[in-house]
Amino acid sequence: MPEIKFIDILRKHKLGARVGLRTEGHQVAPDIEDALRRIQEMETLIIDFADIEVMSHSFADETIAIPLSRLVAGEHGEKYLAVRIDKDELCVDLENALNKRGLVLLRLRGAGNRHWSILGTLSDELRKTAELIGNLRAVSAGDLAPRLGISLQACSNRVVELGKKRLIQRIRVEGERGVKYENVLATG
């Protein structure tokens, strides 16, 4: 799974671990968009926030929330974005920036892709569904519905909604019939 270090992008712009002004974020944002452009369809770009000490609301909005809103609008095709952030404090303003735009994002903690959570506001139903899909690999709506205790139609509606938010993706498993769903961090 392609992964970039946020600090490397900041250093390229002569910025340090403490960012920043909205105008500085505006200068950095094209690099994030470029990185999204370079990944393959169905891939998830992970932005690693290691070594970042401070990030303001405005900077988070310019560099993560706005590029994500373009991604969700389909400007980059069928691609996904996630962040790797160990420091909880960095998530506060990022989450507020996501909430203002009605966005959600997967957050990884530590090495690997096992420990994840969802940043941003999501209804309890959608959160529960996203978490269940994340804990199961490649699950169909038919398998999900009874586990959630809802009808197949209601389950289908939820997975469509989560797909639009770029939290899950539709896949086809070789040798198996029908469409399945998995967390965007599951592949690769």
Partner: peptide, 8 residues
């Protein structure tokens, strides 16, 4: 998406 600065 704008306007969250002072709130933060």
């Amino acid at each position: 998406g704008r306007g969250g600065g002072l709130m933060s």
